[in-house]
Design a protein around this nucleic acid. Structure first.
Lengths: 199, 199, 199, 199
DNA sequence: GAGTAATCGAGACGGTACGTCAAGTCTTATA
DNA sequence: TATAAGACTTGACGTACCGTCTCGATTACTC
């Protein structure tokens, strides 16, 4: 449909990949603050115009690079209990977050989303909301089974999970891992269950 | 002690206040992305050097402006129960977050903290950690009373609270208010109560 | 040869001429002391970078402007006598020096050559030495004919001529003209030869 | 008259000398282009205001420093012939010009006189014209004795002498010395003598 | 002595211009 | 039509000095 044989030279896949690779390299080397379109072009041996033609901003290049390199979209487990599903979801999420390059990139993208409103909209729609929807499937199933904590909306459960993760990423910069996963499961998924068992 | 009568002209309080006011105005008008040191200098009728002399970056000016204008440090209630203390803390926190100017500024500062590591350190020490310590007092008292949810560290409770608030601010941009406060109280502070009743 | 079809946009001749014209205008209006790169850029509707890309300093811009506007390189007469050749050379030189704009610019360039050693080298090589060589042709012919004053090297004759002109320009700021030409001819070219022949 | 016992603290001679010494040092070390009032103040341990109170510009400080350090005003010989007087005058002048520091400073002052018209006026009156007057005494005596070259005004003789010296200083930067003195004497002072003998 | 007045070192102030960097656009020759 | 190259205008950066303006301290003359 879209790339139906049009006249003219075709988009160079080689240039595209060189741009994405150069972008990740540069962020890893000197941080997002030092990332420039000129730097990407120079590193990847590409003209600046080629970058501007295909991406609206350098943050979009970075988002694209992240999506192309790391498969960001974690599987949605269906083990039958919220406890197991949430634990599995958090484990595969943490696996990503433990990679320093991915964590640094996510920090930069969330930051840029605050400063550049147009990119912010795209980041929310293309990335954040998709992650919410994935967790939403798990939480919805839990709600139907009556496994959610009393007095807390499904949406807020999602906010609590992602909020805690992002806060660790952005604010405390402490590593996330099994320990935090267990705590979140204890807080959000063991509530009704454990009390029920006790009785 | 430190500024014990040194020779030379004294710092102009008038200029300092003009700079802080201009900074807030400019952020309110066009957003942090459009905030420049030159703009602040022009708006406040001050030389650029005067800004660079006293603040290491424009983000520091903005942080100072926020601290000077809005009293950011909310009171720490001591009502005897975690439920009441947390509710009170969240209410006064939300009061701040509801002001669009404050919310926008916090977003920008958290963003800049990711992009500029040196400012990030200052932001964490001068702002984020102070807020954590305030909530920490409340949480510590709750822990001593056995009011914390089982299986969750005191530090993680703090992460959950601030994480959820910041996530709403940065990612979903939904307004925070009484509703969210009630949900967080239900999740974090009503737990022990019910188990206590069981025993 | 050198600019044989390279890729990329070509240097804009329009910008180049606008820069040179603006430079001369600004010097004429407010003097070299008030000439700034920013001023040139603003007046000529050009980015500062375009100036810095092609000239190492504002004095070089001015030298280029002078060379482009006024044809500085006077003809070398060959009338058969030193007397006639020197007189002709001086006359055409004075024609230039009588233009206030040219005189002011030369003053500024000679001044800048003292203050900025790197420009000084370029000014000497690109301008002063070329003028010396022109007069050198005339003086050499005179020397071969035995028309030079006794006890004075060819190089010193050149120094005396240009020295007197520059001294008038820089120090006394008196107008130069026919009168001075006649005196220099009397001093340097009428010496032994003509007086001997006449008698 | 002017320093008639007024109330108040007296001008500090110590500061004055420290300023002049620092100025010469700085020019010697890094050239006039790097000379700044702030640098002089820092080097001499003096407040900037103290400099601005007593000198209108940094060039005036430098001129004062030169006058204070080196006695610039050469003696006016009276040997009975233009040849001897001019030779003596040139010899003592060259003695000054051979000192690199003096030569560099003179170059800078002549340059600044072109760029800053107000200093130019002072430089001409306080320095250049005094030198002219000294040589003028010698030339006037020569004119009365009929020793000047035919067809050349007394003023032009002075222009030729100083012009050649300044041109060597500013343009060719060749050392001046006995050789040039002899040539100028040959050109300007031996003329009338030889023709007189012929007759 | 007790003013009174000018100077001093220090250093902050409003400005101007510097020379650099990168943004995003435009132009050229080539594929 | 896309591409690499590279020149273009624009705008902000952070720095250097300018010349002026407080300051508290010092020093001298006047009453």
């Amino acid at each position: 449909m879209t790339d139906q044989s049009r006249p003219g030279r075709k988009r160079s896949e080689q240039s595209r990949l060189a741009i994405l690779a150069a972008t990740l390299d540069l962020v890893a080397e000197a941080g997002y603050g030092a990332l420039t379109v000129e730097g990407i072009a120079a590193r990847s041996g590409v003209g600046k115009q080629t970058i501007y033609r295909w991406w609206p901003s350098k943050a979009d290049v970075l988002l694209d690079a992240l999506a192309t390199k790391a498969d960001l979209y974690v599987p949605i487990p269906d083990e039958g209990t919220f406890r197991a599903d949430l634990g599995g979801f958090l484990d595969s999420t943490f696996e990503l977050g433990e990679k320093a390059q991915v964590a640094d990139t996510l920090r930069a993208l969330m930051a840029q989303a605050q400063i550049d409103p147009e990119f912010g909209k795209r980041f929310r729609e293309d990335f954040l909301n998709r992650r919410r929807e994935a967790l939403g499937v798990i939480v919805d199933r839990a709600r139907e089974r009556g496994e959610l904590p009393a007095g807390v909306n499904a949406g807020t459960v999602i906010d609590v999970v992602f909020g805690t993760l992002w806060y660790r990423l952005l604010a405390t910069r402490e590593p996330v891992g099994r320990g935090l996963a267990d705590e979140l499961v204890a807080l959000l998924a063991d509530h009704g269950a454990s009390t029920a068992e006790i009785r």
